[in-house]
């Protein structure tokens, strides 16, 4: 890559993060800084709005809801994907080919068109306005099942045979052998589920009216509509919602980006 191209690439990259930077500038700016013409581009590190968000409002409560929902969803997706992937790749009961197709075909269903019947269903099974309703439907994923099935198929079968001869039960084998060996697939699943679960908006918008279960994304949207001009507090709260994503991205961006390209390399250690 030539020098000029590197500089250009860096500049384009900066344009992409400029809005995020402006969020920080306004959140940590002076009162009324958002209305300044021309805009300020450097934060003045006034933590007033952030302190209000952290101490005097319910934002932390919504963050806690998001954490609970995201963490539980991740554990659920990992469990169901691991078990199903293992069964489909190594146990292969009769009809597992058809079952596999059925499970991953979920990815082809247009989510936007299902939201109405899903609402009716959630109402019927009394899962509206509950953590269960925000978590359970996402505790299985076609992509996760696909990933783990691939990973198990790439694993030498003799690991499982050795464990069986040693008298290890299936769960012992999965816990002590498969999970450590399939760490890359586990990591990918955690990262992808984290991003999609933390950023979930439309589902809670429709399924959760009560504040006690709402995640931060939903609370932000309510607040945004009610107090449009309170930019400092809004951007501070938004920063709170983005922060976990930035931290995870900072640690694992290469892994996250690679998992997008549909790369199946490195499923097994």
């Amino acid at each position: 890559m030539s020098m000029a191209r590197r500089i250009l690439a860096g500049a384009v990259g900066l344009v992409f993060v400029l809005p995020l930077w402006m969020d920080l500038v306004i959140a940590l700016g002076k009162r009324g800084g958002a209305f300044h013409i021309p805009p300020t581009f450097w934060p003045s590190f006034h933590f007033g709005a952030m302190t209000v968000v952290l101490t005097q409002t319910h934002w932390l409560h919504y963050v806690a809801n998001s954490v609970l929902i995201t963490a539980t969803t991740i554990i659920g997706v990992l469990t169901t994907s691991l078990l199903a992937g293992y069964a489909l790749a190594q146990l292969r009961p009769r009809g597992s080919g058809a079952i596999f197709v059925l499970l991953i075909a979920v990815m082809m269903l247009p989510q936007q068109a299902l939201i109405i019947p899903q609402y009716v269903l959630m109402k019927d099974v009394h899962l509206l306005n509950s953590f269960g309703g925000l978590i359970l439907p996402f505790t299985a994923s076609g992509a996760g099942i696909f990933l783990f099935r691939q990973a198990f198929m790439h694993m030498p079968p003799s690991y499982r045979e050795a464990a069986r001869v040693d008298g290890a039960s299936t769960l012992y084998y999965l816990w002590r052998v498969a999970i450590p060996l399939l760490r890359p697939a586990v990591a990918t699943t955690i990262l992808v589920t984290f991003v999609s679960s933390w950023n979930m908006f439309q589902w809670p918008l429709i399924m959760a009216d009560t504040k006690s279960v709402q995640p931060i994304e939903l609370a932000l949207s309510h607040y945004m509509q009610a107090f449009e001009a309170n930019w400092r507090e809004l951007t501070s709260a938004a920063l709170l919602a983005m922060l976990p994503v930035f931290m995870v991205y900072g640690f694992a961006q290469r892994h996250i980006i690679r998992s997008v390209g549909g790369g199946t390399s490195g499923l097994v250690e």
């Binding site: 030498p156 003799s158 690991y159 050795a162 002590r176 450590p180 250690e269």
Partner: peptide, 8 residues
């Protein structure tokens, strides 16, 4: 191939 568990 021995099948030693590489992570143990």
């Amino acid at each position: 191939n021995y099948s030693l568990y590489p992570h143990l």
